[in-house]
Structures are given as C-alpha cells and as structure tokens.
C-alpha cells in the first residue's frame, strides 16, 4: 500500500517546524513517530499534502526530573519511558509505556504524538489526565503552557493552533501516600485497547483523601468518572465502596459499539478494569510493589 503522495519537509528546529506549518497551511501534518499517521494515510483516512518531520530536531527526546515534576520531550518514544529509571518514580507511567502496542511500535511512537493525535482509544491522555499534566507548545507567536484537561477538546481534536507544535510534557509527581495504576484490555498486542481505566488515589490510613479516575475508549475523549470519584472520596477503600464506585463508573461511560465490541460489553469491561486498577492503585499507595500491564489474549 502506498500512502498518498506528499511533500516532505525536514524541520531542524521547533521554530522552523512552526513556520513550515504556517507556510503549508491546513493541508500540512506533523510527522512524529508516524505509527498512527502512516496507517491512516495508507487507508486514505488522511491525505496531507505536506508532512513536516520532527524527528531530526535535536534535543526533543528526554526525560528529566525537575523539582516535583517530570519533564518529557515531545518526541520521547514510549520505549524510552518504559525503560527510564526516572519515569519509574511514577509507576502508572510505566504501566502505560510498557503496554502500548508492541515493542516495534513503542520504539517509534512518541508521547507528544499520542497526545496531539487525541485518538479516543489512545492510552497516554487517559493516564496523564489523572495526574497534573501540562503541555508546552511552540508556535510562531511564542510558547504557551496548556493544562492537559484543556488540551483535548474532542475526538482527534486539540486546542493546538495550525502552526503550533508540542515541545514538552510536564507531569507533577504525586505526593507520598498516593498511588496510581492503569489497566487496558486489548484483543491483541499491536491494537488499540477496547477499554482502559487509570486510577490515582491518595490515602491517609485506609481513607481515600483524593482520587482521580479516567476511562479511555468509552467516549470521544478520556471520560472522568466523577460519580465514582465521589463514592470513593472520603471513604474507606474496601470491597464494598469499590464495587459501588465501579457501578457508577459503568453508568458514566459512553461507549460506542464497533469492531472491538458492543457498547454493553465495553461498559461491563470498563467496570472490571476500574475495580482492578483501583485495587492496584491502593496497594501502591500503601507502598507495595505491584506489576500492572495491558491485558490481552
């Protein structure tokens, strides 16, 4: 399969990428890892006339700890996060990075690309929206920092201006006593999940002080399970509370039937994932080491 023909522009800096985008207009797309874009082009779901390649911009791939934040260059590959001792400080990041698709795709796919594509089935936006995350974006007019919850507005839609490029993703490291876990179910390794849930809890003793729950693949953007959060907040996190919260989360999901499953099936699945992710998050908040990974047949 040949993708439709396009003109290729190799940017040497973010500033140059922004000006290339501005010059090429609406028919330009950014090429980061290409693991979604190239398949979409082959299927003619995307036919950009111009591609601006970010892969040759120096110093756009890094993982750094700065005060209480982790900073990721937009071009950081999933596999680099998977194998990073720095990122391991926040285990939920490893849950996500180590389970996206397969080894080959993780070697190419990027964090910035995943967020900017805003695929409703993408993993990163679900995980990072349970944490305090913001994106630094560069355009011709300069740089601005956008909180993740303002960044994605709809399926495949972000607030990025046509000439803007994500430069860096900043994630606040959760405090002591906080734990998170991400679980996604997929039919096979290389595909997008059927449903996914990220949970972040902060405990004081057995009582849940703060909680964030986001569900993926069951709405046009990551869905906040506000009612489920309400059930858990201030409660002692036992079996009963988690069961009631899962019931609430199921009702808050808004899944579409597709080749991955019926709406009813996805609703069931998201409840199960929410319970399991919550148990794992609670154990981690208590300081236990728990291995969590994408589930697939």
């Amino acid at each position: 399969m040949f993708p439709p023909a396009f003109n290729y522009h190799r940017a040497k800096s973010l500033k140059e990428a922004a000006s290339m985008l501005a010059q090429a207009g609406q028919e330009a797309k950014l090429l980061a890892g290409g693991q979604s874009l190239i398949p979409l082009m082959k299927l003619r779901f995307a036919s950009p006339k111009h591609l601006v390649d970010l892969n040759f911009i120096p110093r756009l791939s890094y993982i750094k700890k700065y005060k209480d934040e982790l900073h990721f260059g937009a071009l950081t590959r999933h596999s680099e996060i998977e194998n990073s001792a720095t990122a391991a400080a926040v285990p939920i990041l490893h849950d996500c990075a180590a389970g996206i698709a397969d080894v080959q795709i993780r070697n190419r796919g990027t964090l910035g690309g995943s967020l900017a594509e805003a695929d409703p089935s993408g993993d990163w936006a679900v995980v990072l929206s349970t944490l305090e995350t913001s994106l630094s974006c560069v355009g011709q007019k300069g740089e601005r920092r956008i909180p993740l919850h303002d960044f994605i507005t709809d399926a495949y839609t972000t607030v990025l201006a046509p000439d803007e490029v994500v430069r860096e993703i900043s994630v606040k490291i959760p405090p002591q006593g906080s734990g998170g876990a991400y679980l996604a179910f997929k039919r096979a390794a290389p595909v997008y999940p059927t449903a996914s849930v990220a949970v972040q809890v902060t405990l004081e003793g057995d009582v849940c002080q703060e909680v964030a729950i986001r569900m993926g693949c069951v709405g046009l953007t990551p869905i906040r399970a506000s009612q489920a959060e309400g059930v858990l907040r201030g409660a002692s996190l036992g079996e009963k509370a988690i069961e009631i919260a899962a019931e609430a989360a199921r009702s808050e999901a808004d899944p579409q039937p597709d080749m991955r499953g019926s709406a009813e099936y996805k609703r069931m699945l998201v409840g199960v994932l929410m319970k399991r992710a919550t148990y794992a998050a609670v154990r981690r908040a208590r300081g236990e080491r728990v291995d969590v990974s994408h589930l697939y047949a």
């Binding site: 290729y8 090429l31 290409g34 190239i38 070697n107 290389p190």
Partner: peptide, 23 residues
C-alpha cells in the same frame, strides 16, 4: 502492511521497527 504482523521488522539504529510504517 497495516503495522500489525511484524513480518517487515528491521533494526533501525539498533531498535526494531515495522518498516511498513516508516518512510
């Protein structure tokens, strides 16, 4: 040819990639 099967896997700078999904 859809980034699924891995038959086209090659090493690019020491890392495996699916060469049907790299220009």
């Amino acid at each position: 040819d859809t980034t699924y099967c891995g038959a086209c896997t090659v090493l690019m700078n020491g890392k495996t990639v699916k060469s049907c999904t790299v220009f």
